[in-house]
Design a protein around this nucleic acid. Structure first.
Lengths: 209, 209
DNA sequence: ATGGGATTGACCAGGGTGGTCAATATGAAT
DNA sequence: ATTCATATTGACCACCCTGGTCAATCCCAT
């Protein structure tokens, strides 16, 4: 990015990156259109190239911005207190979901990056570090003794995370179909608690249910 | 489609539809390119419009073809014998996976249709009927008494299907990352059995484990 | 040799692309 | 009021790709 962009108001920077990330998230790098980015951000074509060198550098800077943004958010909100794996998963899911509602463009952008495979080396390393960090947060300081003794811990971890991801995905799909609605939002989280209770009953020793 | 196409060799029809489905699956209707379809199918532009009226009718006919193809395949391979839900899910997953490896273009095409929302009414009905049929197959003639008594059946069904879907997705993601490999294929299914055994231990009464 | 279906690919108008740039608008300092 | 640097515009460029057409071939059974 050029100096002109750096000296911009933080919220304006966010708006512009948001426009770019939404476009890249929906269409991928190649088929993303700078004209649509410009329209989304409410600015003229000339301005975009007054702020950035070219399309590629818009993408690169947006990716940097997105990863930083998520990492800051997560760092702020996460305390890895000792807890069971089910509780940890549930908490992370919840955080993720709140973040998704607050910053859908960033979430979608990062998701599309995760599934694409045309990142350069630097970006791949950056992204790998990001994912590793997520794993660390997910597994740090867990109380694994809550799991039933007759089930392997690693197996239980896999099963539980698949289950909770499945719930999350179904939720997203429902939301997308019906349009996301804050009334339903709470309903869904009541359901979530119900399923979490069931999971505890299935996977945990009696004293932890 | 025009008469010329109908009188084509069945395998050639498949090739052409496969090219179209691959293109539509990757790019969606609007951004799909008839030029790329033509290239994929190894034919000239003129030929495509000798077979079909226009881009839309290519899509329509491909969708018909895909749904018919899947339904025939499933009908042939599925006997809904009495079994537990875990076994049913596992079997359907396996069938789905084998089908995916045999006909990836069809699978991806149908998946993209499932997530898109620009189907016309007739297609929506057709697709709804298709999904309903899948649900029927999934739930027909189940032995629900295998589930532990202290867990609600509907809850168990949800949890188990989320879990198994999660496993399937992880498998797909791994395959995509490493390139699908038949050696690994079998490994994965050994793992699968391991996880199924764990699920039975968690969800079933002792006598059904 | 002829007729007719199969097949080609150059071609079209139209629209979108990433990127440029001369022209202006703005606003603070003089 | 003038100056001057910075902010901002959108028309414009050459290029590429689009869905679709069609005159020209090719192929082969008669």
């Amino acid at each position: 990015m050029k100096e002109a962009f750096k000296s911009l108001d933080g919220s304006r920077q966010y708006e512009i990156f948001a426009a770019a990330m939404a476009e890249f998230g929906e269409h991928g790098f190649k088929k993303a259109s700078t004209n649509r980015i410009v329209k989304r951000a409410g600015m003229s074509k000339g301005m975009l190239y007054y702020y950035f060198d070219n399309k590629q550098s818009i993408f690169d800077d947006a990716l940097d911005f997105a990863l930083d943004h998520i990492e800051n958010y997560m760092l702020y909100d996460i305390t890895t207190k000792k807890e069971g794996f089910i509780e940890r998963c549930a908490r992370l899911s919840h955080i993720k979901y709140v973040y998704f509602k607050a910053h859908p463009e960033i979430s979608k952008f990062i998701t599309s990056v995760y599934f694409s495979d045309d990142l350069n080396e630097v970006q791949q390393e950056r992204n790998a570090a990001f994912l590793e960090n997520r794993q660390r947060i997910l597994f740090d300081n867990l109380d694994m003794d809550r799991f039933r003794d007759d089930i392997d811990h690693q197996t239980a971890i896999k099963l539980v995370s698949w289950t909770i991801n499945g719930y999350t995905q179904e939720m997203e799909h429902m939301m997308k179909a019906e349009g996301l609605d804050f009334e339903h939002f709470d309903e869904y989280f009541e359901d979530f608690d119900h399923y979490l209770a069931a999971l505890r009953k299935l996977y945990y020793k009696e004293e932890y249910q």
